[in-house]
Design a protein around this nucleic acid. Structure first.
Length: 554
RNA sequence: UGGGGCGUAGCCAAACGGUAAGGCAGGAGACUUUGGAUCUCCCAUUUGGUGGUUCGAGUCCACCCGCCCCAGCCA
């Protein structure tokens, strides 16, 4: 077995060695109140890969203890996302709500042991009685009710005899504890709402703090991996487990993921969706798994990223460029190359015969010859990219310009003879060139030119819509703005409708990913229909000219 | 000022008490029929600080400094 790759694996190996646990059983426990995002992916990858590495299992469990916030559509989305990432939980898709009967019994047991009581204090009173960070709390006047009375009251709570907020069940621990979580936390509350799974069976629901550790125990989880903010809930979880004398998982906390130029809190992501700043949870600018998928990310790239960032207890912000690096690295190996011209300008090859089409061979992926080749039609009239021509080229600009020669990818070397401009706007309308018939790609002649351009045959090219996505936020830390909404990048989406793509893309299917030569990686959006191609820009290629330009600007 | 954590490069992150891995970003160059990819080289005399223990300290001890989390009947 490989060496432990982080502190959690070290602990697990120690536990296995000392016999504290005989096997490893983890779980990924999302609350179905929103879509899963890249931060969840970190936890998913961690839990599933650890289970696999140590020959154990990982459950998928919905922590659905609050019917006010949870919805079935979110569980469906979560299931789809985890599966898409490539993980398998067998038949172990569980729900905390499956344990409501058991949890109720555990609560009754605590009452019988004198370790829980029904409190009549209002929410405001409970808050006031809790004390502050520096002062101890005050015990509720209802704290010392008899076991019988508590049992009866709790049963009546269950039967719906009280209103929401009228009564709660609290653990009886220590109102003077320095750890606020131990100051008699609420473990059951009255919520008269129907639950997405249990319907109207219950009107009292366990709190997360009660349900979570006990659900882990019920499932026989050995290592409960969670984020740092639950570190000081651990004594409470241990307390429940010990009072009840049941299986004791070991909780280990790690730092949650933060990513530069993005927000990863469900509250903020919901706001982006609800207030319409994005088109939905799966908008390609969203850091949700669904958004990344629609953007064209591969599960492999996301998993690789999750492994590269490591696991520790230090709060950190990972540079989004690392995610993009993992993406490019994966796509470079697998994406077929095609030619697409985003901002077309016409090129006419004066010395090329009219009404003549030549079929040129083009490799589908220079990184992987097994992906084969395809035929590309070459004709007298082509489109090239607007930025690939400059009438007055600055230094270090190697592309087409009057009198300059460039190669057309997979085709010939052309020389620019003259340009026709729109007399009114001054915009370049047509570029007239001559080609060198002896310079065809693959021919023995090896003339060198400084640049190679991508192109499409005007007659054959297909029209396409291309959506250029950029980062959603302008600042590395969107929290810097008073309201993170003000940090939104107004140019995070640019739609280009006049793009020209090579005809081989005619049957491109939803979700397929391509490299548009020299431009970037793109994938077919679900909005794409027969006769109306829509591509999303997944990520650009590294553009060294852009870098040179940036430097010259300074 | 109570409790719980965390400080190793611009960003992540390794390092039985034995002389600071790796990745990203950045820089320089080679190569190139994608200015892509690839390749080569550079990028911490020092681990928040100060003392101490030790032949030897990022690792052990003491004190100090800084940052994060907790006062939901959210998770």
């Amino acid at each position: 077995m490989n060496r432990p790759s982080n502190f959690i694996e070290k602990i697990i190996e120690e536990d296995l060695r000392t016999g504290r646990y005989k096997k490893v059983h983890t779980r990924f426990p999302p609350e179905p109140n929103g879509y899963l995002h890249i931060g969840h992916a970190k936890a998913i990858v961690l839990n599933f890969t650890i289970a696999e590495k140590y020959g154990g299992l990982c459950n998928l469990r919905m922590d659905d203890t609050n019917p006010l916030k949870e919805e079935a559509r979110y569980v469906e989305a979560a299931v789809e996302d985890v599966r898409w990432l490539g993980f398998d939980w067998g038949d172990r898709l569980y729900f905390a709500s499956d344990y409501f009967d058991q949890l109720y019994q555990y609560a009754v047991e605590l009452i019988k042991k004198g370790k829980a009581y029904v409190d009549d204090l209002s929410p405001e009173e409970i808050r006031r009685y809790r004390g502050t960070l520096t002062e101890p709390g005050i015990e509720s006047p209802y704290r010392n009710r008899s076991v019988e009375e508590n049992l009866e009251l709790f049963e009546r709570m269950r039967r719906g005899e009280f209103n929401e907020g009228e009564k709660v069940l609290r653990a009886k621990i220590d109102m003077a504890s320095g750890n606020l979580n131990m100051r008699d936390p609420v473990i059951y509350r009255i919520i008269k709402a129907s639950h997405h799974r249990t319907g109207d069976k219950w009107c009292i629901y366990p709190t997360y703090d009660f349900a979570h550790p006990l659900s882990d125990s019920i499932e026989g989880i050995t290592h409960s991996l969670c984020t740092l903010e639950f570190e000081d809930h651990r004594p409470l979880y241990d307390w429940f487990i010990e009072q009840l004398g049941i299986h004791h998982p070991r909780q280990i906390e790690f730092a949650r993921l933060n990513l530069s130029y993005t927000v990863l809190s469900k509250r903020k992501l919901s706001r982006l969706v609800e207030e319409g700043y994005v088109s939905g949870w799966d908008d390609p600018r969203m850091p949700t798994i669904a958004g990344l998928r629609r953007r064209g990310y591969t599960p492999e790239a996301i998993r690789d990223f999750c492994e590269k960032i490591g696991i520790s207890k230090a709060n950190s912000v990972v540079d989004i460029q690392l995610l993009e690096h993992c993406l490019r690295e994966d796509l470079n190996k697998r994406a077929p190359r095609v030619m697409a011209v985003l901002r077309p300008v016409k090129v006419i090859i004066e010395n090329y015969p009219e009404n003549y089409t030549e079929e040129l061979d083009a490799e589908n992926n220079p990184e992987d010859p097994s992906m084969g080749t395809r035929k590309l039609p070459f004709t007298r009239e082509l489109y090239i990219e607007e930025d690939d021509f400059m009438e007055e080229p600055p230094p270090k600009y190697y592309r087409l310009a009057p009198g300059r020669e460039v190669r057309l990818k997979h085709a010939y070397i052309i020389r620019c003879e003259k340009v026709i401009k729109d007399t009114e706007t001054g915009k370049i309308k047509e570029i007239y060139c001559r080609y060198d018939p002896d310079s065809r790609s693959g021919s023995t002649q090896q003339r060198k030119v400084k640049a190679t351009l991508h192109w499409v045959s005007a007659k054959h090219a297909l029209d396409a819509e291309v959506r250029l996505y950029d980062r959603l936020f302008l600042k590395p830390n969107p929290e810097e703005c008073e309201d993170f909404i003000e940090c939104i990048n107004p140019d995070s989406l640019k739609i280009l409708k006049q793009c020209k793509v090579e005809e081989s893309l005619a049957n491109a299917k939803e979700g397929e990913r391509y490299q548009f030569l020299r431009v970037g990686y793109f994938c077919v959006d679900p909005d794409s229909k027969n006769g109306h191609l829509v591509f999303n820009r997944t990520v650009t290629l590294k553009d060294t000219w852009a870098k040179i330009q940036k430097k010259l600007m300074k």
